[in-house]
Write a protein that binds this DNA or RNA. Structure first.
Lengths: 195, 195
DNA sequence: ACCTCCGGCTAATGACCTGTAGCCAGGATT
DNA sequence: AATCCTGGCTACAGGTCATTAGCCGGAGGT
């Protein structure tokens, strides 16, 4: 068995922390638990990470970056309002299905994140929510959508994603494709697109 | 200032625990915190409650009972599928707005609930979700709704409620009425009712 | 051959936390 | 008046946790 290099060990720790934070929560997970999951003792973790808090911050920050990047990539290819929203929702839902632990931790454990990591992450979160709200608002403006409140419609669509992260399971129905198809359809119905 | 009787003190503790569990989470809240919020010392709490765990279980159980009772009351008055769903969603959303701390704790802190309280509460939770799914399925069966998956539609509607518990604030827009109206409308669009 | 440094380890520190034991004041009951 | 009970309190037991200190084997470079 090859001894893992520095970077591998860090990735192992990252993965173990993600798994445990998602399953039990940040507060209920000890450094010793994370260490045991990668086969070492608690204090040895500090050769790789600065603190438990920094581990959480890194996981959440990385998740937000990924999510924002996927959103921008999804939206970039078209100018049509309905198509933009469809792609944004598809990206949103697939991310929450495919990386449900990351998304789950990113939402649930924000509470345990303290300054100085907290503010920048809340800002990116707000940016992401704002992007959806703008998408909906632009569609309403252009007459492509018809819904009373752009904000509430955007919140609803975003909450759909969080729901997916909670109940989605890789090994049973509905599949990622099922959910992506269904939820994009639902999102378009919410804004009453294309009639 | 009148000295609170036994029952009042218990209610104070209940309220303080709810507030703190919602704000910081169960794991991050100490008995001393709860005690301080009602003006006494940690150990004195044990004259009123058996344990921290039992306090959490009581809060969640009570919440589930309330939610189920509200649902049954809402649905009882009509046999029309669309109207039943409208009333069920209205009840669901209003509960999550009006009792957002209870709903929040009931969802988020289920993780911290261990046996023997865990199973019965999960059962009631499944019962509630099942009721929504049946409502949607019955509407599809009768031709009143048109949506691919009753389960996914029901999950989506339920997730909408959880979202409300997360971001709703009593002291700013949108108001409870705004959200109730908007979300019932959205739920009916999701199942494509009455066209 | 020597040295450096990486990444383990054990021991320990200091802070907390839940829950129990047992004391006590004062109101209620008899 | 004497007694009991309620609901506070302090002290403490028994644990866990994050993090630091300091040791050490062994791999890789010189």
């Amino acid at each position: 068995m090859a001894m893992p290099a520095h970077h591998d060990r860090r990735a192992q720790i990252w993965a173990a922390a993600l798994e445990l934070f998602a399953a039990r929560g940040y507060e209920a997970t000890s450094m010793a638990d994370i260490a045991a999951a990668v086969g070492i003792r608690g204090p040895s973790l500090y050769k790789h990470v600065a603190s438990k808090q920094e581990l959480l911050a890194a996981i959440i920050a990385h998740t937000m970056d990924d999510l924002l990047a996927a959103h921008h990539a999804a939206v970039a290819g078209t100018a049509d309002h309905t198509e933009q929203l469809r792609r944004a929702v598809d990206s949103h839902v697939r991310y929450h299905a495919r990386h449900r632990r990351e998304a789950f931790v990113g939402n649930r454990e924000l509470r345990s994140l303290v300054e100085p990591h907290r503010s920048p992450i809340l800002a990116r979160r707000a940016e992401y929510a704002g992007a959806f709200e703008n998408l909906v608002a632009a569609g309403i403006e252009a007459g492509a959508f018809e819904v009373r409140s752009a904000r509430l419609a955007a919140y609803s669509i975003l909450d759909l994603g969080m729901g997916v992260a909670v109940w989605f399971r890789e090994d049973s129905e509905p599949t990622e494709n099922d959910v992506a198809w269904h939820h994009t359809e639902i999102a378009l119905r919410i804004v009453q697109a294309g009639r």
